[in-house]
Amino acid sequence: MSTPVRDPAALPRLGWTLLALVLLWPLLRLTDFRPAALFEAGNLQAMGHFLGGFLPPETAPEFLAMLARATVETLAMATAGIALSMLLAVPLGLLMTRSLSISRLGPGRGGWVGQILRGLARGVLAVLRGVPELVWALLFVRVFGLGAAAGVLALGITYGGMLGKVYGEILESTDARPARILLEAGSGRLAALCYGLLPNAAQELVSYTVYRWECAVRASVVMGFVGAGGLGQLMDQSMKMLNGGEAASILATFLVLVLAADGLSGFLRRRLA
């Protein structure tokens, strides 16, 4: 019997494997990949000392009071940030929704004003969420000084971009016929939104917002590292002073907070479903 044809995938596979290996080398060099560094005496000592300080976690009353304040501040930052982001997201998201366009009803492809506005909204949203919240926070700390205000504004801007885009997408993907019928019957955009789109989309919109709130809790912790208040700022200070006990308490608080936010958001979203 004849020998089977050669494997047609053999050459491409060989090529890709070689390419991957060739690329891996500069990756390792660029990232200064030295696992041995983890075991160097100096690093081991620093880490050991720090981790050794973890036990016992700091429980002095005045520190705990500070911790509690920072925790509440973190939660407040997340909540205020999301509230602020809605101010951006709702109008921009609605602007992007084609099912609410009146000019598209008539014959033709719709007014060019509407199209330009929609494109503009899309672009603004892309820039808002394109710059990470931490960079915004770093910039705002320069303007407003250290503290939660910078964090809230940064969250508001980035999450405004994300929520606006997703709101637009959700509204676009819901059944547009009820809204269209209302618009054709001469009702306004707001009425078409409330009676035509929201009944079908509300649950998904709320669910996504809750999910984003959960992300915002994490993000507001992190933003503390650039001086925007909350648990992160406390953690940053403790780390800089290599105070293991405080860091352990903060980390534990932080884990509980994140898991609780996770749980609450999951619970709310299940209730909505």
Partner: peptide, 26 residues
Amino acid sequence: LLRSVPELVWATLMVLAAGLGPFAGT
């Protein structure tokens, strides 16, 4: 546990464990 600790917190820990530089970030 790995997921709940944000990247930046891991980074501060890894800077301690591996020294300043891209390796800690990785």
